[in-house]
Design a binder for these strands. Sequence first.
DNA 1: ATGGTCGCTTAAATATACCTTAAGTGAACC
DNA 2: GGTTCACTTAAGGTATATTTAAGCGACCAT
Lengths: 311, 311
Amino acid sequence: MSDRLPPLTALRAFEAAARHLSFQNAADELAVTPAALSYQIKNLEAHLGAPLFTRLNRAVALTEAGKTLLPGTSDGFEQLRAAWRATQRLTDDTKLTITAGPAFTAKWLAPRMFRFAQANPDIEMRFAATLKVMDFTRDDVDVAIRFGLGGDEGYYSEPLLRGWLTPMMTPTLAEGVKTAEDLAKLPLIHDDSMTFLKRVPNWGEWFAAAGLPDVDTSHGLRFSQADHAVDAALEGAGVVLGRLSVTERYLGNGRLVAPFALSLTTPAHYRFVCPAGTETRPAVKRFHDWIYGEMAEIDHFAEGRDIRMIE
Amino acid sequence: MSDRLPPLTALRAFEAAARHLSFQNAADELAVTPAALSYQIKNLEAHLGAPLFTRLNRAVALTEAGKTLLPGTSDGFEQLRAAWRATQRLTDDTKLTITAGPAFTAKWLAPRMFRFAQANPDIEMRFAATLKVMDFTRDDVDVAIRFGLGGDEGYYSEPLLRGWLTPMMTPTLAEGVKTAEDLAKLPLIHDDSMTFLKRVPNWGEWFAAAGLPDVDTSHGLRFSQADHAVDAALEGAGVVLGRLSVTERYLGNGRLVAPFALSLTTPAHYRFVCPAGTETRPAVKRFHDWIYGEMAEIDHFAEGRDIRMIE
DNA sequence: ATGGTCGCTTAAATATACCTTAAGTGAACC
DNA sequence: GGTTCACTTAAGGTATATTTAAGCGACCAT
C-alpha cells in the first residue's frame, strides 16, 4: 500500500461531492459537467480499491471509507486555500486589513482613517476591532495594532507610542479638584479591559503612586472596554484613569482635562505588528509611515508629565 | 483576485521544492524531471503574479511570498496524506494497530497475543503502549483499549470487563495475614498511575471500605505504572491493591493470592474503542471477538467477591 | 400504471495539462 | 579556461481530465 497521495483532482472532486452529497451540485461548484465528477470519483475509488459512495435511488451517501476521508480532505483543502489566499494578499496592494482593540479602533483609528483613505484612495481598508488574538494567515489580516512587549519570533513588531494613564475628567468636574484627596471623593470610573497584564495600571496604583495607598478605590462605575469608560467620563459621570491613545482628541479639544502631572506607564506598549518581511509591502509601508506620522503629533501631550513605570 | 485554488500539481511541486530548496531533489521526490518542476513553479508564479523563489547562482531561495505559502501548503498536504492513509487502512485487513496502556499491554495483551497471531497469521499486529490520548486518524491506530466511561460521540465503545481491585501478595507473605489489620503492617505497594480519576481506588479507599478509615497508608513503595507495582508484589516486596486485568495470570498460576473477598470497582471500565462504523471491519471484528472470548475466561475470578463501587 | 424527469453512469471524442527530451544559460569550482 | 552543476526554455508527445451524447433506473405526478 503506497502512502503517496491519489490524484489531487480526484480528491478535490471527492471533497466537493461528499460535502454536497450530490455529484450535480459538486460539478456546478467545480464548474465541470456531472460526467467529469462521476469519472473522477470512480477513479479515486479504483485507487482506493473500495467504494466511497453508496449509490442510492437518486442520491448518493458516504460509505465508512468516505466518512473517514471527508473531514481530513476538507480541512486539508481549506488549509491550502488559506495559505494561497494569504500569499495572494502579499502581492495585492489594493486591500489592507487592520486589527486593533475596540477602544483604539473607536477613539484613535476611526476618527483619523478618512485622512489616510483620502491620501491613499487606491487602498481599500478593512478593520477587525477585537481583542482576540488573530492569526495573520488564517484570519486574513495584514497589520495588527496590539498592546504587548513584542519580541515574538517571526513578526515585525515596533513600539507605536509610549503611552501613559492619568486622571481625566470634564473641565466642569475638574473645577473642584485641587488635590488627589479631592479626586477620591468623585465617582471613579474603572476600565477592566487590561486583564492580561500582571500589574494593571488602575486607580489603586495611581493613588499609591500619589502617596495615598489607603484610599478606597472600590466605588464607582466599571466598564469592560476602555472606550466606554472614556465615554462615561465625557458625560461627566466621573473621573477616569485615561490612556493617552484613546483620549488625546478630547484633551486636544478641551472636552477632557488632565490636571495632575502624575501618570502611570507600563513596560508593554501599543505596537505595530505584521508578519516578518511584510513590513516592506507598499500598502503596509504606507500605512506604517502614516500611523507613525500621526503618532508624532500627539507626543507633546507628554510634556511636563511625571510618568512612573509600574511593573 | 479569485479565492480558488491554483493548479494542485503546481502547488504540490512548490511544496516539495520549497521543502528541499532544490528543484532537482524535489523532482526526484515526485519522480519527474527537473524541467517539469521548473515548468510547474513558473506556472504557479504566473497564477500568483509574483515570484515564489529567488533564483541564485546554483540554488534557489524562498521569497516572502514563498515563505508565506510554504507552511500552509505543507500542513495541508500532510493532512490530505493522513486522511488518505486512514482511509486506505479501512480497506486493509492485513494490518491492525492496537493501543493500550503499558500495564494492560505488558500483563494482559502481550502474554496472549501469540494465540491471536497463530489463529490469524494473515493479520500483522502492531502495538502502541502508551497512556497518551491517541487520534485514530492522525496516529494510524485501528483499535484502542482504554479505561473510561465511554459515550464519546463518533466512537464505537464497548465495556471489556468489569474489573476490580483487591489486596494481592505472594502466598508466602499471605501466611501471616488473617485480618485487614495484619495487612496494614506489611509494606504497601502503591500504584500512582490512575491520576485521571476523581476518586482513585487506592489503599485509603480499601481500608475505609474494610471499616478501618484511620489506617495510615502513607508508607510503602510507590510506582507510576501498574505493571511495575505488580512486579514488585511478585518479588514479595509487599502487598499491592491489584487490578484483575493485570494480575489474573498470577492468580491463575498461584504466584499471587487474594485472600480478602472485599474488592473495589469504579464506574469506569476498560473498554474496546474504535471509530464508529469500523467495528465491522473484518480484522477489527476478529480481534474484537477474540479479546471478548479471552475476557470471558477470567470472569470466574469474580466469584465469591464482595465488590464495592467507589465514585 | 405509465410517461416524464431527475441524477448518476458509460463510452467515445476531444481538449488540456503535464511530462520528457534536448539544447541552452550562467555562475562556481578546479 | 574548461567542466560541472542547477535551473531554464522550447518543442513534441503522452497521459489526464473534460465534454458530449446516449442510457439507465427510480421517483413522482397525472
